[in-house]
Nucleic acid binder design. Structure first.
Ligand SMILES: [Mn+2]
Ligand SMILES: [Mn+2]
Ligand SMILES: [Zn+2]
Ligand SMILES: [Zn+2]
Lengths: 146, 146
DNA sequence: TTAAAAAAGCAACACTGTTGCAAAAGAAAG
DNA sequence: CTTTCTTTTGCAACAGTGTTGCTTTTTTAA
């Protein structure tokens, strides 16, 4: 599959917003575009740098929070304490994320990837503990840097 | 095994500091005590609240950083982007942490535990990716809250 | 086109973490 | 125990991050 065209991305952006009953505004289109035109995850800072000249810092925060609430993006915790955001797959619905994939942070290029196809073995917890959610973050060297 | 006495903890604190060639100071003793007299992990805020009336905020930051550098404590990333700190096992040496255990965050009491005995299966990454470090954080209900 | 609802921008603020520097405390030696 | 040297602490100032209340602007829907 080749690179997506600007038109294709634009259509996808509109669809995504409508599907989630969100009004179509400049900041939402711009930020969603950023996610769609590249494969990895974005830190808040990245987004602010790329969209922030045009939009207020507060708007970026509120837009991302809206996307998380609606199940359009999900957050990825990292060791350096900076939240990353990545697009959810279609199955995520409002207030209920289904992202059970693991995340990979490249120590070289610092990009973060959702590895959707990696299956993780069930974890046997000690007696008395019950799991609700498991978060796996792998740090290493990515495909492009290897 | 019963609860540790104040004397026991005090001895342990002294030993730990000497073993790592750190001078024995009020803040280091106090903060190390906090870790030793309870099983879970501590957020920076916790420590600041419990030790901060006596010590400056900056001192707490610097003390924790020193402990991390020396391999006395290790950090635990969490979904809410607040770093937790927990005591390392004996094998950790300066600049080289060996904590390959998983971490458990209770969604009820909000305590964080190191689960040293849980073994995690090897993760099969896609071609081209190589792992250096794997971080597993399980969220659920802990032994005390179940 | 208009009215109602939602979002954006702005200012102000709280919280977190960092740095430089002077004062205080600790370690080592005599 | 006292002196000297080294390390740590406290303080002040600051940068970065995220939040809130309120007003203006934009979007939506009738
Ligand atoms: Mn993901
Ligand atoms: Mn641990
Ligand atoms: Zn890379
Ligand atoms: Zn609990």
């Amino acid at each position: 599959m080749s690179e997506k065209t600007a038109i294709q991305i634009d259509n996808q952006v509109g669809e995504l917003l409508k599907k989630n009953s969100l009004s179509v505004t400049g900041s939402r289109k711009k930020i969603l575009q950023l996610f769609l035109e590249q494969p990895g995850a974005l830190a808040h800072g990245d987004i602010e740098r790329k969209a922030g000249e045009k939009f207020d810092r507060v708007t970026v925060y509120r837009t991302l929070q809206t996307f998380v609430d609606k199940g359009i993006v999900h957050t990825i915790p990292t060791a350096d304490n900076s939240i990353r955001y990545a697009l959810c797959k279609d199955e995520c619905s409002e207030g209920h994320h289904h992202d059970h994939h693991i995340h990979f942070v490249c120590s070289n290029c610092n990009n973060t990837y959702c590895l959707d196809d990696v299956v993780t073995a069930e974890i046997k917890l000690p007696k008395g503990y019950s799991a609700e959610h498991v978060e796996v973050v792998v740090e290493g060297v990515c495909k492009n840097c290897n």
